[in-house]
Design a protein around this nucleic acid. Structure first.
Lengths: 354, 354
DNA sequence: CTGAAAGCGCTTACAG
DNA sequence: CTGAAAGCGCTTACAG
């Protein structure tokens, strides 16, 4: 008798399954096989309620036997969540943010969430569009890796969806910010060059309006002033965080016969560009010019010569951003903090010649 | 009279909307406002059927007025598709694949699709898990950026879901492959060094079992043999496509006092590592040793000295993979082809000293 | 060309 | 502790 019922059930299952996709196992099928209601299966899956041991075992067995995997879309539709987190990055191929993304991916994956990456391309308008795209995809939360969005925009956004933002300090309901001490990092880099005996130190700035960039410049100025040096604006060149702008800055500098013995680039990529500019002019690092970057990209140690830099752990930043988001989602107050900047001295910085 | 109905409708809309999320506008609301059935709105949205002009205008107006954005999950559940494509990459922070991802992102975005990135970390088992994850997310197709999955696994996978794979030539139903001519690229790089007069040319190999790596090695051998040189296995060192393995290879080489005048690294990252190894030993590029890489990463031109390489357009590869997937999804036979390899001569390669 | 209706695979009050 | 039922927001045969 029991067998007969089982067989009848099975043929029914097969029929259902083949409707659209032969592989699809549904929660209903699990419920039937386990002899419980779909509600019970759902509750076991989500840990929503305490279920008697026997039923739980039966359900777990059925899940294993059938190889059941919940359909995230049905879950999302019914439960009002997607188990996916939107991540706004500047460029998915950025050497710095790429590492952060892998940290995010790691932590989210552990918690059963997926990441949806969208690129803002260093443009506030595009970043706004990213938010729209992510909203339409119904992500459960948004991680914003720095960028140019205004504080106000972020606060408004956080009213309807949890937001974690890096690269600034902001307090608002539903929002958590993770800020790296760019000021201190900028100060340390400059201080390192001062300690070596440099006095004419060039600063190649990052993308204008970017909080990171501004803070690093502030750190540069602070170190200079603390050393009793006057801030010389002709030593501060514009940049945009890309290699090409570092090259351009050095070319310009050399063109106007500006005298200097060291360069602090607001990120490693620009430092690489600057190094090329020096190389092209026959200037050697660090003999003729000392060079220090910022970020400590994986590539920094493979530059020739290996680049001194301020270490900022992108991977850890990504992990932190992800775990903070998860906490926000679970109603836990995030308390994580980004590690302090660290000076990494390699071979690109040395005392000046004379 | 008409006004009254509209007002009544509105209050109903508000009630519905506030149920879960105050911002949510549904297709039903659009239908009501436009005075048509939900089916019609759906058909207009999807271009599934020809709809009379008047109704279309009414619906478009209603969509605009309400700021309606279709819920992708409901769409997915009902329509059996998610408008999302899974992308299996080796590491989301890979300098090479990162650029490919941005190409994929660009093309997919244009078509209203999203990408779901998962990383295989150069491991066949992890890549298999990636497929499972993507399946459970119900992606409409899977793009596999090279990797170690067996041909058989890919073919099997393609039976139930469209697959585009790069880095190999494979024919199977539901599958399209995009292969870069790594053999020719390897040959060209080696030929370049031969043309400069080098005879003792080291090859630093890529990750074992990776088709890219094997092909580049084959190209190396072919060029050597065409030049009438005997293949010397002691000149071929193991690598894994990472900087560190390039460094290690050179260290090993120098340790065993192997004589050579040039190095061909199977990718730029290993070339950077090799450059560091040479630098540490006081050897200069290209005076003492010529160096050529493969991929032509954005960083290659910023190396010191700028690195000669074989150009492979990762961005274009990504675009091609994405458009091919879109074609597969639309029942169109993809015909795209990856551009041929291109030799880029910079400053890291020169004739040998003697 | 267009509607009414059923259904996609789940979750969650609502009742016991 | 557990079910039956309604509903999430769409799409798609099925009828006109």
């Amino acid at each position: 008798m029991k067998n007969k019922i089982l067989m009848a059930d099975k043929s029914r299952l097969v029929k259902q399954a083949s409707a659209r996709n032969a592989q699809v196992v549904t929660l209903d099928m699990v419920a039937q096989l386990a002899g419980v209601s779909p509600s019970t299966v759902s509750r076991i899956l989500n840990g929503t309620a305490v279920v008697s041991g026997l039923k739980k075992t039966a359900v777990d067995d059925a899940i294993a036997k059938l190889g059941f995997v919940p359909n995230p879309m049905a879950r999302g539709l019914a439960g009002g969540r997607t188990l996916s987190i939107g991540v706004i990055t500047q460029a998915i191929d950025s050497p710095f943010y790429g590492v952060a993304l892998s940290g995010i991916e790691y932590e989210l994956d552990r918690a059963g969430y997926s990441a949806l990456y969208v690129s803002g391309h260093w443009d506030a308008k595009e970043e706004s569009k990213c938010i729209d795209v992510l909203r339409s995809r119904r992500v459960d939360g948004i991680i914003v890796l720095t960028g140019r969005l205004s504080d106000q925009t972020l606060k408004t956004c956080a009213k309807t969806i949890p937001v974690v933002v890096t690269g600034r300090s902001l307090k608002a309901p539903g929002l958590f910010s993770l800020n790296f001490d760019n000021f201190e990092g900028g100060r340390m880099a400059t201080q390192h060059l001062l300690d070596l005996g440099h006095r004419r130190i060039v600063f190649i700035a990052g993308a204008p309006d970017h909080p990171d960039a501004n803070e690093r410049l502030r750190g540069y100025r602070a170190a200079l002033e603390a050393a009793g040096l006057v801030y010389d604006p002709t030593l501060v060149l514009a940049g945009d965080f890309r290699e090409s702008s570092g090259l351009q800055a050095v070319t310009q500098l050399l063109g106007q016969k500006c005298s200097f013995t060291a360069i602090f680039a607001a990120n490693d990529q620009m430092a690489f560009g600057a190094a090329l500019g020096l190389h092209r002019s026959g200037l050697r690092v660090p003999r003729d010019v000392s060079l220090i970057g910022f970020d400590d990209l994986p590539m920094a140690m493979y530059a020739a010569p290996p680049l001194s830099s301020i270490h900022e752990s992108a991977y850890e930043l990504g992990c932190l951003a992800a775990t903070s988001m998860l906490q926000l989602l679970n109603g836990v107050k995030p308390l994580g903090q980004v590690p302090a900047p660290l000076l990494v001295v390699r071979e690109s910085s040395a005392p000046p010649l004379n």
